[in-house]
Nucleic acid binder design. Sequence first.
DNA 1: ATGTTC
Length: 475
Amino acid sequence: MDTQHLTQVTDTQWRLAPQGPMRVPGILFGSQALIRDMDDKVREQLANVASLPGIVQAAYAMPDAHWGYGFPIGGVAAFDPEEGGVVSGGGVGFDISCGVRTLHTGLDRAAILAVQQELADALYYRVPVGLGSTGGIRLDDREMDAMLAGGARWAVSRGFGRPEDLGRIEEGGRMAGADPKQVSDQAKRRQRDEMGTLGSGNHYLEVQEVTRIHDDAIAAAFGLELGAVLVSIHCGSRGLGHQIGTDYLKRMVLAASQHGIRLPDRELACAPLNSDLGRAYLGAMRAGINCALANRQIITHLARQVFREVLGVDPTLLYDVSHNTCKLEEHVVEGRRRQLYIHRKGATRAFGPGHPDLPESLRAVGQPVLIGGTMGTASYILAGTVQSQELAFNSACHGAGRALSRHAATRRWQGRAVQNELAQRGILVRSPSPRGMAEEAPGAYKDVSEVVAATDRAGLARLVARLEPLVCIKG
DNA sequence: ATGTTC
């Protein structure tokens, strides 16, 4: 992106002045190098988002932003229902509530290395992975609706994990306001036997070692020590979330003119928050959030079984974050408290210290912000800050962000070669898809360290710990 | 991301 279109505000904040139909400015976070490497499409898409009815303050792009469907991935936008604000399926993304959860194993690197092959094989055998993968659970209509209304709480009530897990999940493990009736039969049918599966693309289950502590006090509060081994699970709402996105995109395109909305881009299809269609989407999307929370809870149960069998330990949950959501939150804008719907697409909620929605055990330090990297580089744990409320409605980046398209990556790398190179570096990858491994080659991503450094410098979240992979189960 | 094209 040519920075001449932007005004530099700080070393990590750039402003796109309102022009044409834009109702508010665009704000991009990132170092000069990250902004320069961003596609011009990010700026165009940000300008489109800034043109939507009822948008408040600005349209934001996180340091890992890249071109997405309608909204940029790494995009954040708040809408006020009292001012004609809208909800957009493209603003949430097709993988509703895709997110990351991280568990403590209580083990160190040496314990893993002693059984590394066996652990990798056992996890790969136990956790279903890949496009169209199915699990050992079948949901009838009644159980489907209970899952869509109950999220991880439903999963715990059915024996997947423990009640104490729930306090370490956004929304206490259950998104309120879900309305399973607003989810199509087709979406439910697609999900019937996909619970407890990772899916494909950038989804994974990783065993990781803490290789650097950046903030001693917060790391201690999160229970993180140098050399400790963690498990991170990155996945979402599978076929159900995708079908909800598809269903409502069509309906929002068709209804836009009735709602008096002129779309700068069909992919920005949206509906007023105060409309039947807007409310129906919110009910369905919240059911999609519960599906993703239940899915990560079941996968946690499967991973725990493996860790008990192979290593005799029972991992505990550090935290679970979603990064494709639209959530109703209270924010102070220019001194006034307002109830706003915050779209975060490829962006993590990042509540700072003292936020009332955080569990008591985390309230003093702020919310863990779990950033997934690539299978060959690093992942990071950050913490929410107080100032991120004013900067971007308590939001932070979500990952490395792609630098090369999937197609370009498959031309440059071969999956088996990627796997072998990683094995030589001590990282065991298991995947059903050589093509998937090529698409996900570490070189196809931006430098996650640069992304989190910019996030930390911008004040969006504070850097706490660096993690490096030992085992990766990859879709 | 996705029964990788309705």
